[in-house]
């Protein structure tokens, strides 16, 4: 794996990190065995889209990604600086994210998007 990257870099082929990542996504066991989406499916595609800067695509793949990223950054800052209402905010954001994930999964079930 590393060898192929290095050889590509050495031969100065155009190396696209996103392209490489797209072909090396981890697929969850549920999806790999059954072909049916699990509640977390789409997270990696969504993070990749976010890294590329496509907010809309990211939301389409997995609506909870943007709040999750915000939550993780906020938690890091909170652990460093210790805001007074930080713990409460983290709790509320976490509950919101859980609700978003559940709604997203139910929406997927109702719209028959589970089986690709």
């Amino acid at each position: 794996m590393l060898k192929s990257i290095l050889s590509k870099m050495l031969t100065q082929e155009k190396f696209d990190l996103f392209d490489w990542l797209n072909h090396h996504l981890l697929s969850c066991p549920f999806k790999a065995y059954f072909g049916v989406d699990c509640p977390g499916c789409g997270l990696q595609r969504s993070v990749l889209a976010l890294l590329k800067g496509n907010l809309f695509d990211s939301f389409n793949f997995y609506p909870a990604t943007i709040p999750l990223v915000i939550l993780i950054i906020f938690t890091a800052v909170h652990l460093k600086l210790d805001f007074r209402l930080g713990a409460l905010l983290i709790k509320l954001m976490f509950m919101g994210i859980a609700v978003i994930i559940l709604i997203n999964y139910i929406y997927k079930i109702y719209n028959h998007q589970l089986i690709n």
Binding site: C28, G40, A64, I72, T75, I90, F94
Partner: peptide, 18 residues
């Protein structure tokens, strides 16, 4: 305190990973 907070938050992104 820190460990439980971080693990609690990570439990959602890792929700379906094995």
């Amino acid at each position: 305190a820190t460990i439980s907070l971080v693990l609690g938050i990570l439990s959602i992104p890792a929700c379906c990973c094995y």
